[in-house]
């Protein structure tokens, strides 16, 4: 083991491979979360991972930590219950965009209001992947999915402003920008209060291929070309990734830049 692979201590290696499709970006996010844990040296006893339902939700079971795989959309209230029951625990939610922003959207909104000191990592693949590829709350406008055969008539939810409204932590990043993703997750974990990382990641099978991407690399290269890093901006444009600036809360030193 060296520094590059130390993160593996946070995984149940004997359960690998994951059930995800070849080229699924979820594995990249899972790995990067573990790297962030490793960077902060989070204690394995004392850290709990909670997930909802979906392809992304399956990741909870691969952490070599106590973990809870809840019902669809309910990871946040379960995580809040854990945190309010035992404040000493680090509580991290990992789930999909449909789970967290769609069916669980009200819980997300209320957790922002309560500013519960937990971290949410959203595997944002812009689609309901597990159920075959239906439109999600962050599927781009005009995109064709199983349930929007003529293109998504709606605009995607831009949730950063919800976080801004109560000085919570919000970052957007992608599976291409590995260092950036890791930095976002580390900062989110360090944040005292409610923190959320929207990690754009590729579902090649039920999304990318239908949009014309030949493979996962093309999706990764799209992230590379489309997104520009703009950390500590007041707000992120559609094609920007970064940590949004929020006023320091009395209890912590954030932001650092």
């Amino acid at each position: 083991m060296n520094n590059d692979t130390n993160f593996k201590r946070y995984l149940k290696l004997d359960l690998l491979p994951t059930p995800w499709c070849p080229g699924c970006g979820n594995g990249i996010v899972l790995k990067t979360i573990c790297q962030a844990f490793d960077e902060l040296d989070l204690p394995k006893n004392g850290t709990v991972v909670v997930s909802g339902i979906g392809c992304a939700g399956r990741s909870a079971g691969f952490f070599d930590l106590d973990s809870v795989h809840t019902a669809h959309g309910r990871a946040i209230p379960v995580a809040e219950g854990i945190k309010y029951a035992n404040d000493a625990l680090n509580v991290v939610v990992v789930s999909g965009d449909g789970d967290l922003i769609g069916i669980g959207g009200n819980h997300l909104f209320q957790a922002i209001r309560r500013n519960t000191n937990i971290t949410v990592i959203c595997y944002a693949n812009e689609i309901y992947a597990m159920t075959g590829g239906q439109v999600s709350p962050i599927t781009p406008h005009n995109t064709k999915t199983l349930t929007t055969p003529n293109g998504n008539p709606d605009r995607p939810a831009d949730i950063q402003f919800l976080f801004k409204s109560n000085n919570c932590f919000f970052a957007r990043t992608t599976a291409y920008h590995l260092n950036h993703m890791r930095k976002c997750i580390v900062e989110a974990l360090k944040f005292k209060g409610f923190s959320f990382v929207e990690a754009r990641t590729m579902c090649i099978v039920n999304y990318g291929r239908r949009l014309g991407y030949k493979n996962s690399n093309e999706m990764l290269l799209h992230y590379k070309e489309f997104y520009k890093i703009n950390d500590y901006a007041e707000a992120l444009a559609e094609n920007e990734i970064g940590i949004i600036k929020s006023a320091p809360r009395s209890s912590d030193g954030f932001p650092s830049a």
């Binding site: 709990v48 909670v50 809870v68 809840t70 019902a71 309910r74 209230p77 379960v78 995580a79 809040e80 219950g81 854990i82 945190k83 309010y84 029951a85 035992n86 625990l89 009200n106 819980h107 909104f109 209320q110």
Partner: peptide, 23 residues
């Protein structure tokens, strides 16, 4: 510890979390 949640779905899930956390 008493929490008024946003709905009963959140309520039951919060107590599931708290119970697993030992309370």
């Amino acid at each position: 510890k008493v929490l008024q949640m946003e709905d009963e779905i959140a309520s039951i899930n919060a107590i599931i979390g708290a119970s697993l956390a030992g309370l």
